[in-house]
Write a protein that binds this DNA or RNA. Structure first.
Lengths: 193, 193
DNA sequence: CGTGTTTTGTACCGATTGGTTCCCTTTGCT
DNA sequence: AGCAAAGGGAACCAATCGGTACAAAACACG
């Protein structure tokens, strides 16, 4: 019927995700996105409506990708002890920093930023963190030490662990020294052991 | 010698702090600050050089005020059990939210924002959180259950608790539902008990 | 090989950003 | 009274913000 798109939408979205991941929602300017995605204004607006809509799609993608990866790790049956799965998640976050990636977590950055005034973003962030929390809840069920907790207590514990996770990744983004970050992970391990 | 200032510098700084607290560093525009501080561009730039310098002074003020208040609470001898002091800090943060203040913690917001690319801000944030961490460390020393920990373990535990604190306040800013926030505080209590 | 439809690139838009400059007023001190 | 120093207000600045308009280019289909 007409001229086909010369770029892959999914690929462009992936690139946009990395731009937002690094600069945050407000910190990512149109030129930043254009550069990172490798396309021009006309194409971006035709394909993604506007910056906010693009960010919402990026958030959705991040959830489907990073969050689901975390949830998968948290319900990995090849690690029988759920507490160890949770530890693996924290250690993975720390490893990211050691490997030079101190962008933190896109969701956590958005939580401190646009979530405070934009209801849509707040809702998406809340859902993403909620999914992670549920994954932790499941993992706790596979931990001998915590499986005996009643659901309310176990849920509250999952909420607390999510808070630790948000704290860790936010502090990583702030480039807090590695030793402190390592201590956090280590102490989480002690707490769950 | 010359005309004296018609506004109180300290008072203006206090007002600037609240503007930054609500909007974050990047989110606070000059007009926002001018309105909130009740002065004009000329006066602001003459007294505070520029936005960044103003923010650094605000950060310093926040440390001298909010952080020191937290540290004071954490070393309050009228509460003999240090763990209870830590709990009081978490409960205070939750109470803020219940009372309608969901601005979170200025330091935590800065951690997720400009700290990622501005070394000066990162340093100030790191120092502020460090002071709070040291306060927690001291409080743990006054907790029967934790005083026996060796210094390294106790320090690592303090680091972990700071991460929980950053997480809690960041999630508060993202307007996560009160029940979840309450669960976090409650579970911290269970953990420390 | 047109023709119609869509993408693409660019020029452009008004609004807003942080920051400067200027002039006038107000003050303190001699 | 008069001078020097500083404050206050507003006009002004270039740069950048997110977003739009439009013409040219590229493809699918008859």
């Amino acid at each position: 019927m007409a001229r086909p798109r010369s770029f892959d939408t999914d690929d462009a979205l992936e690139k946009a995700m990395h731009v937002f991941w690094q600069h945050g929602y407000e910190g990512a300017s149109l030129p930043d996105l254009l550069d990172g995605m490798g396309l021009t204004r006309g194409s971006l607006y035709k394909a993604f409506t506007d910056k906010k809509t693009l960010f919402m799609q990026v958030l959705q993608r991040y959830e489907k990708q990073a969050v689901q990866a975390g949830v998968a790790m948290l319900s990995d049956p090849s690690v029988p002890n759920g507490a160890e799965r949770i530890m693996a998640m924290f250690q993975g976050s720390y490893q990211n920093v050691v490997n030079g990636d101190d962008r933190g977590c896109l969701l956590c950055t958005a939580a401190a930023g646009p979530s405070s005034y934009d209801d849509e973003i707040a809702k998406a962030v809340s859902e993403g963190l909620g999914a992670l929390r549920d994954g932790i809840y499941v993992a706790l069920g596979a931990s001998p030490k915590h499986a005996t907790l009643n659901p309310a207590e176990r849920g509250a514990l999952a909420d607390m662990i999510i808070a630790q996770y948000v704290g860790l990744r936010t502090m990583a983004r702030a480039r807090i020294d590695h030793e402190t970050l390592h201590n956090i992970v280590r102490s989480v391990g002690v707490m769950l052991a």
